[in-house]
C-alpha cells in the first residue's frame, strides 16, 4: 500500500459521504486512489469532486454535516490561508464535523523558496483558532497514516468540529511537490 492509498482508505474508513479536493501534484495520487476505489475516472467519481478554492470546499463539504453525514476535504496546507474565515465562521462556530487532509509543504524536501512562509506556521495557526491538528510524516508507517486519517474523521464526528490531518510526504513513497 502507498501512503496516498493509505490516506484514501482512511477517508473512506471514516465513512465520508463526499470528498471535495483542491488540486496539487502531491494530493493527485490520493485523488486517483479515492476515485479508483469509488468507480470513477479522470479525477471525478460519484463521491469525489474537484473544487476550485479552499473556502468553497469548507462550505460545500461542511454542509454535509447538517444532513447527518461527514464531508471530507483534500487540499494543500498553503490553502488554509484562503480557508480560515470559512473554517472558523462556519464549521467551527456551528460545531459541524468535517475531515480535512492536507499535504504539508515548506519543510524537508521543499524546493520552493517561498512556500514555507505560509506552510510552516499552519499547524500553529490552526491550533490558535481551536482547530485540532494531527501531523503525520516519514516516521509513521502506511498503516498508521490510514488509521490516523480514519480516526481523525471519527474524532471530528465525536467532537462536532473540523479536524485537520497534515501529512508530510518527504521520505515516503510520495512527492513533496
Amino acid at each position: 500500500m502507498t501512503y496516498a492509498k493509505a490516506v484514501a482508505d482512511g477517508i473512506w474508513a471514516a465513512n465520508a459521504a463526499k470528498v471535495g479536493y483542491i488540486p496539487s501534484v502531491t494530493v493527485a495520487p490520493i485523488i486517483k486512489a479515492l476515485v479508483a476505489s469509488d468507480g470513477g475516472s479522470d479525477g471525478v467519481s460519484p463521491r469525489v469532486t474537484p473544487l476550485s478554492r479552499e473556502e468553497e470546499a469548507i462550505g460545500v463539504l461542511g454542509a454535509f454535516a447538517l444532513t447527518g453525514a461527514l464531508g471530507a476535504v483534500v487540499m494543500q496546507d498553503n490553502g488554509f490561508g484562503n480557508a480560515l474565515t470559512a473554517l472558523t465562521t462556519f464549521p467551527l462556530s456551528y460545531h459541524l464535523p468535517l475531515l480535512i487532509f492536507a499535504n504539508a509543504r515548506g519543510g524537508l524536501g521543499e524546493y520552493n523558496s517561498m512556500i514555507h512562509s505560509i506552510s510552516q506556521p499552519v499547524p500553529a495557526v490552526l491550533r490558535a483558532f481551536g482547530v485540532p491538528v494531527v501531523e503525520l510524516d516519514r516516521r509513521n508507517d502506511v498503516d498508521d497514516w490510514r488509521d490516523t486519517v480514519r480516526e481523525a474523521g471519527v474524532h471530528a464526528v465525536m467532537t462536532y468540529r473540523p479536524v485537520v490531518v497534515l501529512g508530510s510526504f518527504w521520505n515516503t513513497d510520495g512527492m513533496v511537490a
Binding site: K18, I58, G59, L61, L66, A86, T89, S93
Partner: peptide, 22 residues
C-alpha cells in the same frame, strides 16, 4: 432557516453542499 451569521460569501457553497447531501 439556516442563518449564516458571519460567513459572508458562503451561502452558495453551503446551499450547494446541502443540495448534494439531501
Amino acid at each position: 432557516h439556516f442563518y449564516l451569521l458571519d460567513a459572508m460569501g458562503l451561502v452558495g457553497s453551503v446551499a450547494t453542499g446541502l443540495a448534494l447531501g439531501l
